[in-house]
Design a protein around this nucleic acid. Sequence first.
RNA 1: GUCCCCAUCGUCUAACCGGUUAGGAUACCACUCUUUCAAGGUGGUGAAACGGGUUCAAAUCCCGUUGGGGACACCA
Length: 481
Amino acid sequence: MKKIENVRVRIAPSPTGFLHVGTARAALYNWIFARKHNGSFILRVEDTDLKRSSKEMIESILEGLRWLGLDWDEGPFFQSERLAIYRQYTERLLKDGKAYYCYCTPQELAERRESAKSEKRDVKYDRRCLGLIDNERKRFESENRGRALRFFIPEGETAFQDIIHGEIKKKNRDIEDFVIMKSDGTPTYNLAVVVDDHEMAVTHTIRGDDHISNTMKQVLLYNALSISAPRFAHLPLILGKDRSKLSKRHGAVSVSQYRDEGFLSDAMFNFLALLGWNPGDNREIMSREEILEQFSLERVSKTSAVFDQQKLEWMNGEYISKMDNEDVLKAVIPLLKGEGWIDEGAIEQKRTFLLHLVAALKPRMRKLTDFVKYSVYFFKDVDAYEPKGVKKHFAEKTLVLLEALIEKLEELTDFSKEHLEHVLREFAEKRNVKPAQVIHPVRLAVSGMTVGPGIFDILEILGKECVINRLTKAIKYIKVL
RNA sequence: GUCCCCAUCGUCUAACCGGUUAGGAUACCACUCUUUCAAGGUGGUGAAACGGGUUCAAAUCCCGUUGGGGACACCA
């Protein structure tokens, strides 16, 4: 494997929302690429749109990155603090005659765009401010109009070599003279990106496909500024179920939301890595180390991928069932506390019980929050029975069985699952019924549910007294049915 | 309206440079084990968008059509 020297990559989120899974995936690939080549991963916050940026969003994005384990080597840098730097570049462009002032107001531009659209005309800027004569300029200035700086697009064709897509080219006449500095003096995205990637010596710009058209503009800027461009790799987009770009309409899109719903960092990392990339063999469950070892941008696919939450859930379940009980418990405790089912002081003395519980539940849980959903009856009394189960398992004849079973259980001193199994099977056999005919009503009586871990696990964890109480309660319930 | 990107099971994808019964995973279904399934085991349904080339041979290369997506802000 050839080493690429001095790799420097970055993730450049804009703090106008939470950490989107698309951004997270881009961050992930950048991070992997940096770590794999012993390079640097830079975090840069693109907050030049001061109206839409917020402190809370910044914190939330950083938190999301940390949760995924994507630690950065430099930054966070804030574009809002680098305004003077951008100005040097825009001035250079202006001086070289490669940019010009535009006095059109945003409203005017919007109106023109609107009418162009309705008349099905091209919506490009018409360069009306390019050849402004002194009088007109003076008039605009005296009217106190704001002026934005536009980049003059030269004639010709622009092309770049994309690591994932190969050559991408476009005729310059299809690109408009875009604004590089707003009338308030702040740079626009395309200018700021070029300046920053250059100033920060970024070697590879790895970002979403939706930036391809921006890349054309940026390449033009690199050329105009006579500075060299980084290598580009445009990742396929992540789509929602309807195959449009993943957005809030599709439900959960922020990584913190997935975290809160009980997904594991490792599983999320694995899943995101595999969305658009694969190691070339049939492996799917892969550790960070394995992914790092195998990853290459060349193997990233060109086709956009639908975010399949079901598959994420499956993968998360795989991770949960492979975790040690101790670790699962550590992850689940905050959730149990949140429900008010245990408190800090009780954790140590209930440790054995809790470990038992997570061990029994673990194989069938897909999300950490499932532990809460399927363990209520270990913490609270059963006050309702699943109606479907009642119909199926609570009949007249079960009454006698349960009553006899209680008597049997009361004699027991050994309440281990092995012994319980033995006792219960023997009981069924003597009464000439199938074990299932005892087990199902018992499960429903002690848990209120028809599904869950093995019944003997449940009984052992609940303990003799509790089991007998609940059976008694169920008997009363059946009697008044 | 303009430009750009993309095209294998429902979904994620594999098959390095053309020769495969088109493989895996997920989802779904069935069977099985069992004590329930939402767990385990086994199996199954299911894909090259279309049309032209090139070639002995095309999922694979080329062109076109169609379809999908993205971009076209003083947002990033």
